[in-house]
Amino acid sequence: SRHTFEINGERWTVEGVSEELKEILRAAERASNDEAERLLRLALKLI
């Protein structure tokens, strides 16, 4: 499935992501810059 999210003013669209990964991306959208970066690094390990 496709998911579009915005982090630090940048929009991203990813396809074929699991519900778990979507949850991480949604958390990154709400997080501070440092926390968002940490969550994105974690998410990339899952891809």
Results as ranks from 00 to 15, higher is better:
L39E: 00
S18V: 04
K45S: 15
R26M: 14
G16E: 10
W12L: 05
I47A: 08
A43W: 05
S18R: 05
N8M: 14
E15M: 10
A43L: 11
A27P: 00
H3L: 15
E15V: 14
L21N: 01
E10I: 15
E19M: 06
L42W: 09
E20F: 13
E19L: 06
S18N: 09
E37R: 09
E19S: 09
T13W: 14
E35A: 06
E6T: 13
K45L: 08
S32L: 07
G9W: 03
E23N: 10
E35K: 05
R41H: 10
S1T: 15
W12A: 01
E23F: 04
L44R: 06
E35I: 08
L21V: 15
E23R: 09
K22T: 12
G9E: 03
R2D: 10
D34G: 14
T4V: 14
G16F: 13
R11H: 11
N8E: 04
V17F: 07
G16P: 05
A31Y: 04
T13L: 01
S1P: 12
R11M: 07
L39Q: 02
A27E: 13
D34L: 09
L40F: 10
N33F: 15
L39S: 01
L44I: 13
A31R: 02
R26S: 13
V14R: 01
R26D: 09
N33K: 15
A43G: 02
L46M: 14
W12V: 11
L39K: 01
L42M: 06
G16Y: 14
S32C: 06
E35S: 04
R38F: 08
R41T: 14
S1M: 12
L42D: 05
S18G: 08
F5I: 05
E6C: 14
L39Y: 07
L25R: 00
G9K: 02
D34Q: 13
T13G: 02
L21T: 13
D34I: 12
S1C: 12
V14N: 02
A27V: 07
L42S: 06
E10L: 11
E19F: 07
N33D: 08
R30I: 08
E37A: 11
V14G: 02
E15S: 12
R26Q: 11
R11P: 06
A43M: 06
R41L: 14
L21R: 00
S32W: 07
H3R: 02
E20N: 10
R2P: 11
K22L: 15
L42H: 11
G9Y: 03
W12M: 04
S32G: 11
E20A: 10
D34Y: 10
T4A: 03
E15P: 04
T4H: 11
K22P: 00
R30A: 13
A31Q: 04
N33M: 13
E23T: 02
G9Q: 02
A27L: 13
A28T: 03
H3D: 14
W12R: 00
S32N: 08
V17N: 05
K45W: 08
R41I: 13
R38P: 02
L25G: 00
V17Y: 07
E23W: 07
A36I: 07
R30T: 11
I47D: 02
A28E: 02
L46K: 04
E37Q: 09
W12F: 14
L21C: 15
E10R: 09
I47Y: 07
E29I: 05
E20Q: 11
E35M: 06
W12D: 01
E37P: 02
A36V: 07
K45R: 10
E23D: 13
L44S: 03
G9A: 03
E35R: 05
H3K: 03
S1L: 13
G9N: 04
G16D: 11
H3E: 15
N8I: 05
L44Q: 05
R11C: 15
L25P: 00
D34M: 13
F5Q: 00
A28K: 01
R30Y: 11
A43Y: 12
N8C: 09
E23S: 10
I47S: 04
S18Y: 06
R26V: 10
S32Q: 10
N8S: 05
E23I: 09
L42Y: 10
E6D: 10
L25E: 00
L39N: 00
E37W: 09
D34P: 14
E37S: 07
L21Y: 04
E6V: 15
L40Q: 02
E23Q: 10
S18L: 05
A43V: 15
T13Q: 09
L40R: 03
A28F: 06
I24F: 04
E19C: 07
L44M: 11
K45H: 11
A36E: 03
I24C: 03
V17E: 05
I47R: 00
S32E: 11
L46T: 04
L25D: 00
A36L: 12
R41C: 10
I24D: 00
L39W: 06
T4N: 05
E20W: 12
H3M: 11
R11S: 11
V14T: 05
I47P: 01
D34E: 15
T4K: 03
L40H: 03
W12E: 01
N8K: 06
I47K: 01
E29R: 03
R30P: 02
V17S: 06
A28N: 01
E29D: 05
E37N: 12
S32R: 04
E10Q: 13
L40S: 01
G16T: 06
D34K: 12
G16M: 08
L46V: 06
K45Y: 11
K45E: 13
L21S: 04
A36T: 05
L25I: 06
E10V: 15
E19W: 08
T13I: 11
N33S: 15
A36Y: 07
E19T: 10
T13N: 05
I24H: 02
E19N: 11
E37C: 13
L42Q: 07
I7Y: 05
R11G: 04
R2A: 14
E29C: 01
E23K: 07
E23G: 09
L21A: 12
E23C: 10
I7D: 01
A36F: 06
K22R: 14
R2T: 15
F5M: 02
A27I: 08
L21I: 15
A31S: 11
F5L: 04
E20I: 13
I7W: 04
R11I: 15
E19A: 06
E19Y: 08
E20K: 08
K22E: 14
I47Q: 03
D34N: 11
S18Q: 04
I24S: 01
N33T: 14
A36G: 08
F5H: 01
N8D: 10
L25A: 00
E20G: 10
A31V: 07
R38Y: 13
R11Y: 14
H3A: 04
A31F: 04
R38L: 09
F5N: 01
R38W: 09
I24Q: 02
R38A: 12
E35G: 03
